[in-house]
Nucleic acid binder design. Structure first.
Length: 355
DNA sequence: AACACGGGGTC
DNA sequence: GACCCAGTGTT
């Protein structure tokens, strides 16, 4: 589809309506106090697939702890993950620190202001690249997220499936023609703010919309039919037995997860896929894998934890061991107090309620 | 192009 | 429950 087939609006007037509204109505958010590229970057990573209200306290605490590129570069990864604990998508934190270290090594600590160098950094995809270039460096680059696709699909009456990668590219090309050269920062942020506040997924507040007069979906009364988005497939359920193993010193066994995949490098209580290892082989399994003896005491409780792509059903058991050490690297007995320094996924924080 | 990758809020 | 969120990396 050619862009000129869908761009049936007065572009200068649209830009002016949007930017005027944004400047009068923008929320007072912690990452909008200045245009520090580092803070813009951190905020954009945190905001990926995450609501503004969720991000605010994490952002404030993160910037206080790691105020600059230098501070984040020299931090321990475990400290960075601890600051990210509960926010989800933990590879964002690890990729961010990886990229920040690359900025120190290759760019003397200055965050690149060009598309090629910025986009080559870990965790900086098309959206984040455009957001940093437009918001921190005032360059007319597209920053197309879910908000922008929703808003533009309605304004321009585009019914392509926004779940398809190809559709995102279409919107990026459209934004290249639509974006204000005078104030790309306000244009991009205005589009996202509009999507978050007015042009919401359900029941958009068209009566309050600053660009209502440009909107083809509103004109036809089909704002609730757009955007078109195909459904993802539903999650698989996986049953586990998780163990709260206490030794004679009153300490509990915890372990570090592998450095790739789900919840990489976070800590957890040992858990066993019950589909692979039978319940009554658990003691033997621990003897072999951890070099410790384990005796199950009682079931402490059950909990279900839902991820975007799978569901854990955890049967939590209390257990005891007469050992104080394990032969497994990245596993150790710790007191409840010592435990607080380790980053845990929310699923295993829930388990601590049973301690 | 399809899938892995968290967690919380809303209706 | 189903959907959504200021998406990216891997396959």
């Amino acid at each position: 589809m050619k862009n000129n087939e869908v761009l049936h609006i007065d572009i200068p007037q649209f830009q002016n309506d949007l930017i005027s509204w944004y400047q009068d109505n923008k929320r007072d958010l912690p990452w909008r106090k200045d245009q520090d590229p580092y803070k813009v970057w951190v905020s954009e990573i945190m905001l990926q697939q995450t609501k503004v209200d969720t991000v605010i306290p994490y952002f404030n605490q993160f910037i206080k702890k790691f105020p600059s590129v230098q501070d984040l570069a020299k931090a321990e990864e475990q400290d960075v993950l601890k600051s990210w604990e509960g926010l989800g998508y933990y590879s964002r934190a690890r990729n961010l620190q990886n990229a920040i270290r690359e900025v120190m090594a290759s760019y003397e600590g200055t965050i690149p202001a060009n598309s090629a160098d910025l986009g080559a950094l870990k965790g900086v995809g098309p959206y984040t690249k455009g957001a940093i270039l437009s918001i921190a460096y005032n360059q007319p680059e597209p920053a197309v997220d879910g908000n922008v696709m929703r808003v533009l699909s309605r304004i321009l009456k585009i019914d392509e499936d926004i779940a398809k990668p190809r559709t995102k590219k279409l919107f990026e090309e459209i934004v290249r023609e639509l974006i204000s050269r005078a104030d790309p920062s306000s244009f991009n942020q205005g589009m996202m703010e509009l999507g978050a506040i007015v042009c919401t997924p359900k029941n958009p507040m068209c009566m309050l919309c600053p660009v209502q007069r440009h909107c083809h979906a509103f004109a036809e009364g089909i704002e609730n039919e757009l955007p078109v988005k195909s459904k993802g497939k539903k999650q698989k359920t996986v049953p586990y037995v998780a163990l709260l193993i206490q030794n004679k010193q009153g300490k509990y066994l915890i372990e570090k997860r592998p450095d790739t995949g789900l919840l990489a490098n976070l800590w957890q209580f040992p858990m066993i896929s019950i589909a692979e290892t039978g319940f009554n082989q658990i003691p033997d399994w621990f003897e072999k894998e951890y070099g410790i003896n384990v005796r199950l005491k009682r079931e402490a409780g059950r909990l279900k934890h839902v991820f975007s792509h799978l569901i854990w059903e955890l049967e939590v058991h209390q257990a005891v061991s007469s050992d104080t050490k394990t032969n497994r690297k990245d596993a150790q007995f710790v007191s409840q107090n010592e435990m607080k320094a380790f980053p845990f996924p929310v699923s295993h924080q829930k388990m601590m309620q049973f301690l």
